[in-house]
Design a protein around this nucleic acid. Structure first.
Length: 871
RNA sequence: GCCGGGAUGGUGAAAUUGGUAGACACGCCGGACUCAAAAUCCGGUGGGGUAAAACCCGUGUCGGUUCGAGUCCGACUCCCGGCACCA
């Protein structure tokens, strides 16, 4: 029976059946073997896979299968980041419990993942919404409370005054509540925080050791931690007969003599005090409390302020300095108060111009003239210049001035040098239902009391349907009512749940020992950890990856894990982007539409002029392109692609279309090409097998008696093996690896096999192609490997080796340039020395045309590559 | 606003260490096969120029370094990601 045509459905089903029956992907701890832990960021079960998932998990699968062929003991697990806001939104929209919605989604998406043939050990599957998992969030939280790493303080949240509920940043659109359209307010509430700032120094310093992380991620984390050394110092003041100090922090102590005012946040105690008998100021402070808490909003709003009427005293000059309330000063940073030096801080400059406050130059740069008409960048450049108008400090450079000023303030007990971090402690309290309950009981007599370990887990009731106004747990008496563990009196449970980043900060440890109910992690975690390769979207470069590092170090300090860092090598996948369309009905919430439902109108140059919803023909708003997300409904479901072309084509296409780190605007142009390639490979193999079987197979290539054609093909083959090994193993440029194999297959197509030796070479080429493609398109390679005459499956084969003897070539192409412009290409024997190459280049006819009549100033020879004649 | 990244043919992209710009594909054009279509195969395809070549121009914009710049440096434009409660 011949297998003339490629039937992806049956090929893929058979391969997947084989892997399942043989339990190929079940990983077992084996200290004798080198382990490789390959981890992809687990998905949020939003409903269906989107192309970003397919890309992410295909990358992980290619690396896993490649490492397996390198002989490693590979673990590739999968699970579900199952708590989160979209489940509550779905509950509101469809009146279905988040738990049921989430379980349905998991079941569907798991089926989709299985159909893609990923080499996943499903026996370790977990979901963060299972009590067996989240009880350990609660357990570790209690350990953190004991160690003082977790603590209670107030934090600011977005408050919807109509729904009487806390809003996520995502639910605030243009400063208004997404459902009610009401103007959002800030509100202070008690929250639990984790002292990530205690680990700031280690989190920063250890970035240097993460050599196999992308440079950009390390830079972003370093900037996020934002270490700066500066001066914390005080402006003494007297107000209503009380003497006190206004403390501020600055990194520019050298400009202290240029202070012309100070500014405090609206929430600063001094502002409240001053507002007590100043209705205008009270109104302004109330105004400052409107709007969202998002930093992007705070940083882009109009800078506004109002004087408090209080004067503070400059600690060095004794001058009176007016104190303002500024809407741009954040209570959460530093002291909630800043010194303002309009001449040398751009924000202060514009604020001073707006309110007519004095601007005093105290730094000068030779050759530059200061003018308060407009801002110039050198005003704030601390790398040049010296102090002026600064009395005793005149002439000093930045660092000398800072030292001198810090010394003088320290002598007066009014200041000290301080290291400051931009990083803030991690607030984990969420006023939401679908999350891990915070294990605290509130007692009128005893205050907040930790739930005793033997009462864990605090199980989240699963039959609630949130309605958008507050947390349904707060109305659930069966959950709320509990006796105080300390005094036994009736008390109430905490209703806040944990930030879902807690769930995702340690799930990779749990995969190593998902079945234990005795402990959070056991000794198997130390076999698999650290993760050798972590793969996930670049959008997680800071928060998730920083929180995980922090959590890991806390667990290390509690003696639970042996490693310092969780992820050895990191690959940050570029986002898969798609167009975004929405409508915004008057007074209602935004309604998004999937791009496949949209008809676009363009002008003759292809520019978008309008867009309408196909269903009703009415216009929709185009909102640019952006990441595929549940909330913007612009995801592309891979299902139809898999059904039409098969998993291998889907995998090949996403890996071929762009390098993994690059962002990708979604288009399925080119899927045909991937499918065509697999069919060509299939037919090339089947044609060969038929012929080979008929004309007595001579399976071994006799490398001692090759003709030129055979040698050329084998050279191309071994060049390709070398390139693909480097592209997959080191560079992670899967697209160029695939292109190299395509070139090889094209060359094979031009090779007419006549003799037994020809067919042996063809067999060698086909086997190598199947081996190197098997991590990318494992199903078709599984079948072809068997068809090529092997008993053992390709999954258990070692990666092919380069035959260095096959790479040897007689001639090399040398490029000849004249003044850097290409003028000739010469095929020259490889053994030619530099002088001979120079002569050959100069004597070329076309080179002569450009050299004739001019004098040769210089000849640059790059051996084996290029000659550049400079005239 | 701040931090990080990106921009190369009609399209996705390649060029790994400063050394041939556009590999490999998609699309399109032409041809073969076919009663016809699909599929498949062969050829062409950055722009200008030529009978064909030669040659000229060309990697977001402007400037610089270099024998030589897509690649390095400076300034800018636009797009994407993150900004602590989307995950």
């Amino acid at each position: 029976m011949t297998k003339r045509s490629y039937k992806h459905a049956s090929v893929e089903q058979a391969a997947q059946q084989y892997w399942a029956d043989a339990e190929c992907f079940r990983a077992t701890e084996d200290p004798a073997r080198e382990k490789f832990y390959c981890l992809s960021m687990f998905p949020y079960p939003s409903g269906r896979l989107h192309m970003g998932h397919v890309r992410n998990y295909t990358i992980g699968d290619v690396i896993s299968r490649y490492q397996r062929m390198q002989g490693k003991n590979v673990l590739q697990p999968m699970g579900w980041d199952a708590f989160g806001l979209p489940a509550e939104n779905a509950a509101m929209a469809n009146a279905v419990a988040p738990a049921a919605w989430t379980q349905d989604n998991i079941a569907y998406m798991k089926k989709q993942l299985r159909s893609l043939g990923f080499a996943i050990d499903w026996s370790r599957e977990l979901a963060t919404c299972e009590p067996d998992y989240y009880r350990w969030n609660q357990w570790l939280f209690l350990r953190m409370l004991e160690k003082g790493i977790a603590y209670l303080k107030t934090g600011t949240v977005n408050w919807d005054p109509v729904d009487q509920t806390v809003l996520a940043n995502e639910q605030v659109i243009d400063g208004k509540g997404w459902r009610t359209g009401a103007e959002v307010e800030k509100r202070e509430i008690p929250m639990y925080y984790l002292r990530i700032t205690d680990y700031a120094e280690e989190l920063l310093g250890a970035l240097d050791g993460l050599d196999d992380w992308p440079e950009r991620v390390r830079t972003m984390q370093a900037n996020w931690i934002g270490k700066s050394t500066g001066l914390r110092f005080a402006f003494p003041y007297e107000y209503r007969g009380v003497s006190d100090h206004l403390w501020v922090f600055t990194t520019r102590a050298d400009t202290i003599m240029g202070v012309t005012f100070c500014a405090i946040a609206a929430e600063h105690p001094l502002a409240e005090l001053a507002a007590a008998d100043n209705p205008e100021l009270a109104a302004f402070i109330a105004e400052c409390k409107a709007g969202s808490v998002m930093e992007a909003d705070l940083a882009t709003m109009d800078k506004r302020g109002m004087p408090t009427g209080i004067d503070v005293t400059h600690p060095l000059t004794g001058e009176s300095v007016p104190l303002w309330v500024g809407n741009y000063v954040l209570m959460g940073y530093g002291e909630g108060a800043v010194m303002a030096v309009p001449a040398h801080d751009e924000r202060d400059f514009h604020f001073a111009k707006q309110y007519g406050l004095p601007i005093r130059q105290v730094i000068a740069v030779d050759g530059e003239t200061f003018s308060d008409d407009g801002w110039q960048d050198w005003y704030a450049d601390k790398s040049q210049g010296h102090c002026v108008n600064s009395g005793a400090y005149d002439g000093l450079c930045y660092s000398d001035a800072v030292d001198a000023i810090a010394g003088d303030l320290a002598a007066k007990n009014l200041g000290e040098k301080q290291t400051q971090y931009r990083l803030r402690d991690w607030g984990i309290s969420r006023q939401r239902y679908w999350g891990c309950p915070i294990p605290i009981i509130h007692c009128d007599d005893c205050g907040p009391v930790p739930v005793p370990d033997d009462q864990l887990p605090v199980v989240l009731p699963e039959d609630c349907v949130p309605d958008g106004s507050g947390n349904p747990l707060a109305r659930l008496e069966a959950f709320l009512s509990v006796d105080c563990p300390v005094c036994g009196k009736p008390a109430r449970r905490e209703t806040d749940t944990m930030d879902t980043f807690v769930d995702s900060s340690w799930y990779f440890l749990r995969y190593a020992c998902a079945d234990t109910d005795k402990a959070m992690v056991d000794e198997r975690a130390d076999y698999w950890m650290p993760v050798d390769q972590y793969i996930g979207g670049i959008e997680h470069a800071i928060l998730h990856l920083l929180y995980s590092r922090f959590w890991h170090k806390v667990m290390r300090d509690l003696g639970l894990v042996g490693s310092d860092e969780p992820f050895t090598r990191l690959l940050t996948q570029g986002m898969v982007l798609n167009e975004i369309y929405y409508r915004h009905p008057e007074g209602g919430r935004r309604e998004y539409f999937n791009p496949v439902e949209i008809d676009k109108q363009t002008d003759e140059e292809g520019r978008l002029t309008g867009a309408t919803l196909r269903a009703d023909g009415q216009p929709v708003i185009y909102d640019g392109i952006g990441t595929m997300s549940k909330s913007k409904l612009n995801g592309v479901d891979p299902q139809s692609l898999i059904e039409q072309y098969g998993a291998d084509t889907a995998r090949l296409f996403v890996m071929f279309t762009a390098p993994p780190e690059q962002a990708l605007e979604w288009s399925d142009d080119g899927v045909q090409g991937a499918y065509r390639f697999l069919r060509r490979l299939w037919r090339a193999a089947q044609d060969h097998i038929e012929e080979h079987a008929v004309a007595s197979p001579e399976s071994e290539v006799d490398t001692g008696s090759l003709d030129d054609r055979q040698r050329d093909l084998r050279r191309k083959l071994h060049q390709t093996i070398g390139k693909v090994s480097d592209d997959i193993g080191r560079r992670y440029t899967f697209n160029t690896a695939i292109a190299a194999v395509m070139e090889l297959l094209n060359e094979l197509g031009r090779f007419a096999a006549a003799s037994a030796q020809d067919r042996a070479v063809v067999q060698e080429v086909l086997e190598a192609i199947v081996l190197v493609l098997s991590p990318i398109v494992p199903h078709v390679c599984h079948q072809l490997w068997l068809d090529l005459g092997h008993e053992e499956p390709v999954i258990d084969q070692p990666w092919p080796a380069v035959d260095k003897h096959a790479l040897v070539a007689d001639s090399v192409q040398i490029v000849v340039q004249v003044n850097g412009k290409l003028r000739a290409r010469l095929d020259l024997p490889v053994e030619l020395d530099e002088e001979a190459v120079r002569q050959a280049a100069l004597s070329d006819d076309n080179v002569q045309r450009f050299v004739a009549g001019k004098s040769v100033r210089k000849v640059v020879v790059v051996p084996g590559k290029l000659v550049n004649v400079v005239v």
